[in-house]
Amino acid sequence: MALPAAGATAAVGLWWGTTVIFGIRSFFLPAPPDIIASFRAQPAYLLRETWATLTETLLGFGIGVAAGLAIAMMLTAWRAVERATFPLLVALNSIPKVAVAPLLVVWLGYGPKPKIVLVVLICFFPIVVSTVAGLTSTPADLGELARSLSASWWQGYFKVRLPWALPQVFVGLKLGVSLAVIGAVVAEISSPNQGLGAVIVLSGSSLDTPLAFAAIVLLALLSIVLFYLIVALERLLLPWARAISA
């Protein structure tokens, strides 16, 4: 905890020092105090836009998680279905989903809808892929144990396979939540009517670089907080997970 804090402080110090020593102007690279000042000039506005981005992210992420888990469970229920569709999923996963952001605006208009849809699209695949990976990696000896206890298919699935997959599910959630924030911002940039992405677009057209930086800092905070919330949830729910991966 102390070392990363020291590292972050040093980086901010270096950045600040550079802007002072080389006399870099604020619209080119603002110093930390400029950014704080920019935030303090209109906190209500910035927090409202942060809230907009947060709700899009969470709605999209929630839908993405529900759909991702459901699809992964359906795919792995039948070995043949999994074998037939998994390569397709991996291929779809590698398409850069942000590229469809402008199309979503065409199809769904300027409201929050295209943003939420992009978030769903971007976090859905990693969640499916890691959940499927988890559900298909049950160790042979646990499978044999279940069989030797005459476990029914349901018992094997819910008492062994699914719990075993949970650490992998969390790998997907951690990837997914970071991507979800990116998805929300990209969608907002391509139809800038609300959210921190819109703030960045507007500040760019008025050359208000400190405001853009304030928005970026808020985005980073949002992303970090969401990520560590999931990490905390994992530690709480799966205290055994790190022991297996070791």
């Binding site: 646990l142 206890l149 297996i244």
Partner: peptide
């Protein structure tokens, strides 16, 4: 013909459910 309830099996590895 299939696993029976009155036959118990123990493996080389403990095969415990970690959770």
């Amino acid at each position: 013909t299939r696993p029976r309830r009155d036959v118990a099996l123990m493996f080389q590895r403990p095969a415990l459910l970690p959770w």
